[in-house]
Design a protein around this nucleic acid. Sequence first.
DNA 1: TACATAACGCAATAATGTTGCATTTTATTA
DNA 2: TAATAAAATGCAACATTATTGCGTTATGTA
Lengths: 141, 141
Amino acid sequence: MNRDFAGLLHQTGLKATHSRISVLEIIADRDAAISQPTLEKMMGDEVDRVTLYRILKTFEEKGIVHKVIDLHGTANYAICSSQCSVHEHHDEHFHFNCTNCDKVYCLNDLHLPAIQIPQGFVTSSVSLSITGVCKNCNQQS
Amino acid sequence: MNRDFAGLLHQTGLKATHSRISVLEIIADRDAAISQPTLEKMMGDEVDRVTLYRILKTFEEKGIVHKVIDLHGTANYAICSSQCSVHEHHDEHFHFNCTNCDKVYCLNDLHLPAIQIPQGFVTSSVSLSITGVCKNCNQQS
DNA sequence: TACATAACGCAATAATGTTGCATTTTATTA
DNA sequence: TAATAAAATGCAACATTATTGCGTTATGTA
Ligand SMILES: [Mn+2]
Ligand SMILES: [Mn+2]
Ligand SMILES: [Zn+2]
Ligand SMILES: [Zn+2]
């Protein structure tokens, strides 16, 4: 992952504020998506709650992060693949929800065969979410 | 769909209260899952908000309805297939989220090919959710 | 260094969800 | 039908997640 967060922000026309860089440092440094509540706790007093919401929303709009709703309905965030931009997200991949540690993993390499949906319905995107126990949690038990 | 809601409730060891029967009447009468906020508005003063939460939770535990988290993270509820029980849900089917009317359709007949997940991860369930525009909304435009 | 504006912090408010406890409803039994 | 025990409900209080408006501060640039 690119470490020049200030550069990344400038590229998308955003100012490189301390808050934004802190958020990027946390999100980029993980093998799994991070939930909004966890992120909020990690940021603590460093960033106002409202600012955090606004940062995440902006990042999503600019194609810097993508949001994944997990099986509990909680918002989780992960860094986008490099092809994403303000115009379009190009990371329609699938996700693994661990029921033990509640992490959400992006399964970037998984490919889904074509799906036959009913007559009259038009698909714009497909989201596959797998529930189970992750590698980490399996090894610990 | 079975119309003997009192009987259904008695079968699962639940008392057939007015509130529960009202909820069943609303949920059973749709071609799509209904969201908690919509349900709450439809019930109005007839049922207390807290009671509604408790009814939905009980129904889920007893295998009467199943919950689907839609793409916004909102809880939606639909009647279970007849095989579901307090012991186990047997309706692991897929869902279609309409971006126009926000309805969530259960795609009961869809079957998903086997999926190859990474080494060390163990799958317990798979949830496929398709986003697009539903038949109804396509016909109106 | 000065400036314009983007971003932030704070206060207020809304929506969603949970818990404890007193009261009412339901099903059963007398 | 009337009495009873347990289940379910309603209400109050509270927690969490999310949004909006507005004055203040930080950022990038000239
Ligand atoms: Mn992802
Ligand atoms: Mn369903
Ligand atoms: Zn795990
Ligand atoms: Zn629709």
